[in-house]
């Protein structure tokens, strides 16, 4: 099973053009250098894993990609256009969606409302119609509810549709968060440790969802994950960061055999 999925991944749809190119990006907070001159690219349709020990700058990298942090040096080219200093909502409107390391759901809202919020960018009826909640506003609401229900079906969370997300167990929260990101119909999906803190069964479910999203919807993904088994199985290419620097880049098999990667993970005698 393991090898099977791995081979499929390697032979998967990862043959598209470069979608996002990160070039010589550096980011520092005060004196702390979080990222130092990292370059890599993400090709359309692939699952790109970003791995590395704790504090290697993985989450910071995602934050740079979706415009939450602004790098001091380097360029980011997305869909052929080099991007200026930008706000996160622009990244969202360009089709970059994201899940978070520590679940960042809207705790006071139900599962349904959380996922509906993901449709915000696609809903346009103004305050006037919203005040009446009738006619076009209601029609729009129903139309997007249908899309959201499809996502709910896909993620198998029908039963918790109207539960406030604050009351859900961790694994389900992660799943709702994935649903919320999917509702944005992203072209590039950034997943920050989607399987952290999950048991084996939940991990298998989540892996299945990730593969299905990639295959069925053709969504490009950048994935941070600590579970090496998962990374090797799911990803088409892997970039390895350590202390903010890139130490390896390539297919899972290549990266796995790289001496620097082994040193970074296991430590090395000086």
């Amino acid at each position: 099973m393991k090898a099977d999925v791995g081979q499929m991944g390697a032979a998967g749809p990862a043959a598209g053009a470069v979608m996002l190119e990160v070039k010589d990006v550096s980011l520092s907070f005060g004196g702390v250098k979080a990222i130092r001159g990292v370059s890599f690219d993400i090709k359309r349709g692939e699952i790109r894993a970003i791995i590395g020990p704790n504090g290697a700058g993985k989450t910071s990298m995602l934050n740079v990609i979706n415009g939450f942090y602004h790098p001091q040096a380097g360029t980011i080219t997305y869909k052929g256009a080099q991007r200026e200093k930008m706000r996160p909502y622009i990244a969202a409107s360009q089709g970059i969606a994201r899940t978070f390391q520590n679940v960042a759901l809207f705790k006071g809202m139900s599962t349904l409302d959380n996922i509906m919020t993901g449709r915000t960018l696609k809903m346009h009826k103004g305050l006037g119609w919203q005040m009446l909640r009738y006619g076009p506003a209601m029609a729009e609401e129903v139309r997007h509810r249908e899309v959201v229900e499809k996502i709910i079906d896909f993620l198998e969370i029908e039963a918790i549709r109207k539960t406030p997300v604050g009351k859900l167990p961790y694994g389900l929260q992660k799943r709702v968060e994935l649903g919320r990101a999917l509702a944005m119909e992203p072209e590039l999906l950034l997943l920050d440790e989607p399987m952290a803190g999950m048991n084996l069964e939940e991990k298998q479910d989540m892996s299945r969802f990730i593969i299905d999203i990639n295959r069925q919807m053709g969504t490009t993904m950048a994935l941070i994950e600590h579970d090496m088994g998962v990374v090797m199985d799911l990803s088409d290419r892997v970039v390895v960061l350590d202390y903010g620097q890139k130490i390896a880049d390539g297919t899972p098999a290549v990266v796995q055999a790289d001496q620097k990667v082994i040193d970074a993970y296991l430590g090395v005698a000086h």
Binding site: F29, G30, T59, N63, F68, Q101, N102, A104
Partner: peptide, 8 residues
């Protein structure tokens, strides 16, 4: 105050 760095 120190500059606030927002984390996520």
């Amino acid at each position: 105050g120190d500059k606030i760095i927002e984390r996520i």
